[in-house]
Amino acid sequence: MAVDFTDPRSGFRHNEVVMFINEEVVSNGGGPDFYLTFRSRPWNEIEDELQSILADLQVPRTVKRACLWSALALNVRVATRQRELQARRVRRLQEQVGERETAAWALASQLRRLREEREVLVRQLRSTRSDLQQALNEREELRGQLLQAERQPSEVASPSRSQQLGADAWPLTAEERNKLLIATSQRRQMVEAQKEEAQKEEAQKEKAQKEEAQNAPAGVG
């Protein structure tokens, strides 16, 4: 028997077909040797061996016919093996495609996350730049106020210690400096007026004392 009924790799699905091939092989004087020898070989080797047998004039025609039927069965077996290999290759490719798709989705998700993080960083950078520019502007404004305060006339009375500390801690605006200068000038004028009034009163007292001394009667000796 050339083809085994129970061999799932033979490629045949119907027992009647297998029985007919085996009968043709046996009836033509053949046996299972050709089939068993080449059942795991590729088709090109099977065909080369069959061509060698057919070209041999010493091989009987019946044996050639038996080998031809065995080669036919082997061809079905080779086709089945190739179909199984192709199916496995397709499944492997499908798995690889699935893996690539999963990786692509993961990369796309990661790309979206990186873009969102980039947008957040860009907004933070813009906010930081704005804060920095505002701080620089405030520094320049404070520097200008400090320079202007240093250029004030020296005759202006200096403010009290607490006011001076406050001014050092936080520079005055132009309006606040004007108010401070006016208040200082008014206090100075008030102090000078009070001083003049006190001097006048003192002079009047001295004058009155002199007049009393002159008008007093001379004492008895």
Rank of each mutant, 00 (worst) to 15 (best):
N178T: 13
T37C: 06
E49G: 01
A135K: 07
N28R: 05
A198H: 13
E150A: 13
R83T: 03
V3A: 01
S154K: 09
E155L: 12
E23N: 13
R81G: 09
D33G: 05
E23L: 09
E117T: 06
T173P: 00
Q133R: 05
R92D: 14
A66P: 00
Q214G: 01
P171Q: 03
S109Y: 07
A218Q: 12
L136R: 12
A135R: 09
E176F: 03
N28P: 02
L125D: 07
A193K: 12
D168H: 15
R118T: 06
D4Q: 12
D131S: 10
L93N: 12
R177N: 06
A106N: 06
R88T: 09
E150V: 11
K207M: 07
E45L: 03
V59T: 09
I46R: 02
E95A: 07
R113M: 13
Y35S: 03
S158N: 08
F38V: 00
E206V: 06
K205P: 02
L180D: 09
L93Q: 15
E47N: 08
A79C: 10
R91F: 02
A87V: 01
R187I: 01
Q186P: 00
P171E: 03
N75Y: 07
M190T: 13
T173S: 11
L136N: 06
Q82M: 11
W170H: 11
Q124R: 15
S185D: 14
P42K: 06
Q148T: 12
L93T: 04
A149T: 12
R139N: 10
A103V: 00
Q186F: 06
L125K: 15
E206P: 01
L165P: 00
E196T: 12
N15Q: 15
E202R: 13
W69N: 08
P32R: 06
V76L: 04
D4I: 04
G221Q: 14
G31L: 02
E84A: 08
T80P: 00
V17K: 10
Q124Y: 04
R177W: 13
E140F: 08
R113Q: 13
R88V: 08
P153N: 03
Q148G: 01
A218D: 15
K207Q: 15
A193E: 09
S162Y: 04
Q204W: 05
T184S: 14
F5Q: 09
A169S: 13
F38W: 02
S154F: 11
V59D: 04
S162H: 12
V18M: 04
D4W: 05
L146Q: 07
D131E: 14
L165E: 05
F12D: 04
E47H: 09
F12A: 02
Q214V: 02
L68M: 08
R39V: 02
W170C: 15
I21A: 02
E192G: 06
E196P: 03
H14W: 09
L93I: 04
E212I: 01
E24T: 08
L72H: 13
F34C: 01
D131W: 08
V156L: 15
V17D: 15
I21F: 03
Q110R: 15
D48W: 04
A218P: 05
Q133A: 07
T184N: 09
A174M: 08
S109W: 03
T173L: 04
A157Q: 14
R129P: 00
T80Q: 14
S185P: 00
P60L: 07
A106E: 08
L50Q: 01
E45C: 02
K195E: 09
R139D: 06
